[in-house]
Amino acid sequence: MTNRNTESPLAWIDEAHKYVGMREIRGTRHNQTIVKWLSQLGAWWRDDETPWCGVFTAHCLTAAGRAIPKHWYRAKAYADYGTVLSRPAYGCLGVMSRTGGGHVCFVIGETSGDRLVVIGGNQGDQVSIATYPRSRFSHFVWPARGNGVPSLPYNYRYTLPRYANGQYSQPLSEA
């Protein structure tokens, strides 16, 4: 039996998966996909070296018809947007604090340890699937609908797919 989340995809997670492996370009050249997102979102800068996890998140959400916070380029702005959840749900935003700012990504699973599997932009200067300790997250947020109306995940979204450490292409069997 597979996890119901992998059988009932979310548009913003599908959009995020399209870009796994896409990297920023160091130096004076910039990744044109990231530059395009910046233009579409109305950013005043056009480089891929300014932290862009919020840019990636905003792109995925808007492509899926979901609302984004006013300051979509700031990772911590996602903590005050949408519906704050008491625990992670498949597809929710995970917001973390770090020295000098924050990080935002989408929760897509968990490992057998106390780590969450996420997909996000600007993780090692690329869009990647990674794990972080659950304790690093300050907020879990369900994205608001496109018209800004808050929404909640279906209850089954709280049963996260379980992945083997380092094996994020396919969740473990739930059987």
Rank of each mutant, 00 (worst) to 15 (best):
M1N: 13
T2F: 07
T6E: 15
E7G: 04
P9T: 03
P9Q: 03
L10C: 01
L10D: 06
A11Y: 09
W12A: 07
I13L: 09
D14M: 07
A16W: 00
A16C: 03
H17W: 07
K18E: 12
Y19S: 03
V20I: 14
T28W: 11
N31M: 12
T33Q: 14
V35L: 05
K36W: 06
W37N: 04
L38N: 11
Q40P: 11
Q40N: 15
L41D: 02
L41W: 00
G42A: 10
G42C: 10
W44N: 15
D48P: 00
T50Q: 01
P51V: 10
W52D: 06
W52T: 04
C53V: 01
G54P: 03
V55Y: 02
L61K: 07
A63I: 05
G65M: 10
A67P: 05
I68L: 12
I68Y: 07
P69G: 04
H71C: 14
R74D: 09
R74G: 11
A75P: 01
K76W: 13
K76T: 15
A77V: 00
Y78W: 15
A79Q: 15
D80I: 07
D80Q: 14
G82Q: 06
G82A: 11
L85N: 06
S86G: 13
R87I: 10
P88H: 05
A89G: 07
Y90K: 07
Y90H: 10
G91V: 11
G91E: 09
G91H: 12
C92V: 10
L93C: 11
G94A: 09
G94W: 14
M96N: 07
S97N: 12
S97Y: 11
R98T: 11
G101E: 13
G101H: 14
G101T: 13
H103A: 13
V104L: 02
F106V: 00
F106A: 01
F106Q: 01
I108D: 05
I108M: 12
I108G: 02
G109F: 03
G109T: 03
G109L: 05
E110P: 02
T111Y: 05
T111P: 03
D114R: 11
D114L: 01
V118R: 02
G120T: 04
D125V: 07
Q126L: 06
Q126G: 00
Q126H: 06
V127E: 05
S128T: 10
S128Y: 04
I129Y: 00
T131Q: 03
T131N: 01
T131L: 01
P133H: 12
P133I: 01
R134V: 00
S135F: 03
R136E: 12
S138I: 08
V141C: 15
W142S: 07
P143A: 01
R145H: 09
R145Q: 11
G146N: 06
G146W: 02
G146H: 02
G148E: 03
G148F: 01
S151R: 10
S151H: 06
Y154C: 13
N155R: 15
N155S: 14
Y156E: 08
R157H: 14
R157F: 09
R157M: 10
Y158A: 04
Y158F: 12
T159W: 02
Y163C: 02
Y163A: 02
N165F: 13
G166C: 08
Y168V: 06
Y168K: 09
S169D: 08
S169C: 02
S169R: 09
Q170Y: 12
Q170I: 08
P171F: 04
